[in-house]
């Protein structure tokens, strides 16, 4: 699973940091850094973080498969 945070919308509420601290971390007061490649054992926590984000800035999904069709 991959994640990307829309940091133009992120307001630093940091709910994701509490729910999935291995993937999301605050850098300073409100700068968010995250690991785009979500480890399998963190997937559930990241789903919860995405659901809890007050501005719904966290997107989850699979990476594009190069084989395509």
């Amino acid at each position: 699973m991959r994640t990307v945070v829309d940091l133009t919308h992120c307001q630093g509420y940091a709910q994701c940091v509490f729910l999935a601290p291995k993937v999301f971390q605050l850098h300073g007061e409100e700068g968010l850094l995250y690991a785009p490649a979500v480890p399998d054992d963190q997937a559930e926590r990241v789903r919860q973080a995405a659901a809890a984000c007050p501005v719904q800035a966290i997107l989850l999904g699979e990476e594009v498969s190069v084989d395509g069709r």
């Binding site: 991959r2 994640t3 785009p36 989850l60 999904g61 990476e63």
Partner: peptide, 9 residues
Amino acid sequence: DSTGLPMRR
């Protein structure tokens, strides 16, 4: 090489 974007669909 880990920053691949997730697809919405």
